[in-house]
Design a protein around this nucleic acid. Sequence first.
RNA 1: GGUCCCAUCGUCUAAUGGUUAGGACAUCACCCUUUCACGGUGGUAAUAUGGGUUCGAAUCCCGUUGGGAUCACCA
Length: 475
Amino acid sequence: MKTRTRFAPSPTGYMHIGNLRTALYEYLIAKAQGGDFILRIEDTDQKRYVEGATDIIYATLKRVGTNWDEGPDIGGNYGPYIQSERRNIYAEYAHKLVELGGAHYCFCSKEDADEQKDEEQNIKFQDPCKHLSLEEAKARVAKGEPYVIRQTINKSGKSKYHDEVYGDIEIDYDELDEGVLLKSDGLPTYNFANVVDDHLMEITHVVRGNEYISSTPKYNLIYEDFGWEHPQYVHVPPVMKDAQHKLSKRNGDASFQDLVAKGYLPEAIINYIALLGWNPGTDQEIFSLDELKKIFSVERLNKSPAIFDITKLTWMNGCYIRALPIEEFHKLAEPYYKECLSRKVDEEFLSKVLQPRVEVLGDIPNQIDFIEQVKDFSNDLYFNKKMKSDAEVAKKTLAEAKTVLAEADVWTNEALFEKLKALAETLGVKNGQILYPLRIALSGKETTPGGATEIAVILGKDETINRINQALARL
RNA sequence: GGUCCCAUCGUCUAAUGGUUAGGACAUCACCCUUUCACGGUGGUAAUAUGGGUUCGAAUCCCGUUGGGAUCACCA
């Protein structure tokens, strides 16, 4: 049987990291076995529907490369792939389930049910409609009385099923409540739509958050009542913000699009989240999607929650940025140059010095702001113990450097470096005693992308001399 | 509260009865050096806890503690 997995998000807005990781695992499980990855939109709750949310889902999945084989936009043999368009299918199966004895019509209001319940004291709703005869119930339905279809659970004892991650799960049937399957608006709840769709779409592996572990027996009952086989279950632990809280968009935690906007590369994000809850069993940490497709296995999925660590993602993103061909890095960096540079500089040279020093693209403006203008800085900045540099030294060497630079006719990094090195020799000082102060004078910053001569090249001769003069005046 | 699940360095994790408990990020030190980074070398740092079982336990069993999930006409 061909492996078929599905990503079934509800279009409620952002694509958060936990969701994306689930999609990734589903994709990888399918592709590791040459199977199909299906996209299905679960929009049975009209109240939560957010305009444009499906577009974000499409865009995100495309961006990371987890392309789907069947879905609302491309169709397939098991459509439609949007639940609101499958309304009639659910209704048909719901009524069938009633006939089969796995569900019953219920005429109670939500308030009636809520009143009876008490979670603290563990009192469940006992549905009086459960005992109505099918004829009577049908008659009331025919009369036009509002109703829902509720699951009927008559079993007792322990329900058992196997989960690929958590192993064997046992839950008492008494713990299960008879939830609504078909709402009064005629649309199904997740509890029902999922089972019907997964069966009809021939899904072989259901991957979802571990919050579904305890309700899975209810779904298995539905499968049983229909005489269907249930899929394999792969419940995955949540991605956490900290030890206590899940990553959630409500708290404004980073979503995929937020991270991309900050300058994280989709490839790096995917690589990082693949490793949040899964490991290859080797020391390798950098993986392309294609590599993951080859080696992913559910056996190596972890049971405990994983905290999302932006610091490690940042490191990994730096790895990806450094590995980029220079032209590609340049293309990614250019928009930031356009945004914050008005001075004309050799942008390709800038990219060259910048690339090994950028971890997140969004840091670029901060790293290059000195090119526009030097912010006020204290002369203490000239102090560096190792370089044997301080304001006094700077005063002398800067003046000397200025003379040499003013005479320079070839304005390249190599040429300038040779000249200043020669100057250091003539003066009998360390290279650093010239270069360190020069770098400070030109940038006003303790850290810069590149050394003194590289910055001089970026700034150009006139501006370099200009800045040395300004610095000298302040010493 | 009932039920279910989880528990190794600060973080992600490896070790499926026998390891000086390994790797990565972060952190610290040193080296390299033209700053910062990159790179290199090394260090600090963990089996929540109490009992069993066993020649031997991070690993198996039980209790405790801590955390999470669930108990919707949300998914």
